[in-house]
Amino acid sequence: MTSHTVVARVRRLAGTRKVGHAGTLDPMATGVLVAGLNRATRLLGHLQLADKSYDATIRLGATTSTDDAEGEVVSTAPVDGVTDAAIAAGVTPYRGEISQVPSAVSAIKVDGKRAYERVRAGEEVVLKSRTVTVSRYDVLDIRRGDGWIDVDVSVDCSSGTYIRALARDLGADLGVGGHLTALRRTRVGTFDLSVAHSLDALAEEFTWLPIADVAAGTFPRYDADAEQAAAIRTGRPLPGLKLSAGQTAMFDPTGIFLALYEPHGPLAKPTAVFVS
């Protein structure tokens, strides 16, 4: 299921056309996808969603055309000589700030066209490396089968990190090839599985996180008085109001979330207003 399909399902369940999502999931992946409804779609772009967590399974012993199980196997290699210690040592260079070449079958645009579209059209795609941060890369379990080794890992990383590329590169470094067979995103920013709902559960009872709760849980909070709230509703700057660096969630005296403001010299100015 693609992220676009999920959005379409949520539109039907919520009874609104205005649904957006933040952070596309690969079709083979499961886990957390943050969606916004109605005016909350505008909040998605302001949320701090750069850090993500994944649980994944890397299969060593085979390389595929897509770096995951959905592609064709293009080469295999015996894994008899790959020890647990070698696997543990193999992930070490991929912790911290690293240079990573994304999978060729990705949504990155090359001359205005998605890389995966070019690959499917038979073109050879070579993407440039990019700097990403992998703050945690833990080996959880190692299982051995007939001609393969499955490695369960848990990863915390910055936005733009490709877990498929981690699988590919580990296999290449060990000399046996590798690809991803399972991927589950367990966290996006402050949103994790504990606040997530399956589509089946939403079909039974459609629940959501109120925009005010998300704003208060993501940004510093400022409770405006009635006069300030009237100015905020129309997006007027607030003189003499000292806010912390970055964006602050502004609330009226009744607890309604009004806007995001940030400091500009002696003024506090809006970056987005959510009520009128």
Rank of each mutant, 00 (worst) to 15 (best):
T2R: 13
V6C: 05
V6P: 02
A8G: 13
A8P: 03
R11D: 02
T16M: 01
T16E: 05
R17A: 11
K18M: 02
V19E: 04
G20R: 09
H21A: 06
G23V: 07
T24C: 11
T24F: 01
L25I: 09
V32G: 12
V32H: 13
G36M: 06
N38G: 15
T41I: 08
L43E: 07
L47V: 10
A50G: 08
D51A: 13
K52Y: 07
S53F: 00
Y54L: 02
D55E: 13
A56H: 01
R59S: 04
L60Y: 07
T63L: 04
T64W: 04
T76Q: 13
A77Y: 06
D80R: 15
V82K: 04
T83G: 11
A89V: 03
T92A: 15
P93T: 10
Y94L: 14
R95T: 08
G96M: 13
S99N: 11
Q100C: 07
Q100A: 12
P102A: 06
S106L: 05
I108L: 15
V110E: 09
K113D: 01
R114S: 10
A115T: 02
A115N: 08
Y116N: 10
Y116T: 01
Y116K: 02
R120F: 08
A121H: 05
E123V: 00
E124K: 10
E124N: 01
V125S: 12
R130P: 04
T131I: 12
T131D: 12
V132E: 07
T133P: 03
R136C: 09
Y137W: 13
V139P: 09
V139G: 08
L140T: 03
L140W: 00
L140R: 14
D141T: 00
I142L: 11
R143P: 00
R144S: 07
G145I: 00
D146C: 04
G147Q: 06
G147F: 04
W148N: 01
I149Y: 01
D150C: 06
V153I: 15
V155Q: 03
V155H: 05
A165G: 08
L166A: 09
L166R: 09
L166S: 08
R168G: 11
G171T: 05
D173T: 11
G178M: 04
L180I: 01
L183D: 07
L183S: 02
L183A: 02
R184D: 02
R185E: 05
R185M: 04
R187M: 09
V188N: 12
T190V: 10
H197C: 12
S198E: 02
A203P: 14
A203I: 06
A203K: 15
E204V: 12
E205R: 15
E205N: 15
L209S: 14
L209F: 10
I211S: 10
I211D: 10
D213V: 08
V214I: 13
V214Q: 01
T218D: 14
D223W: 01
A224V: 00
E227N: 12
R233L: 09
R236C: 04
R236D: 06
K242D: 12
L243A: 08
S244K: 11
S244R: 15
G246N: 07
G246L: 01
T248N: 11
D252R: 14
D252P: 08
P253R: 03
P253V: 00
G255S: 05
L258Q: 11
Y261A: 06
Y261E: 04
E262C: 14
P263T: 10
H264K: 12
G265R: 05
A268S: 14
T271I: 12
V275Q: 15
V275I: 02
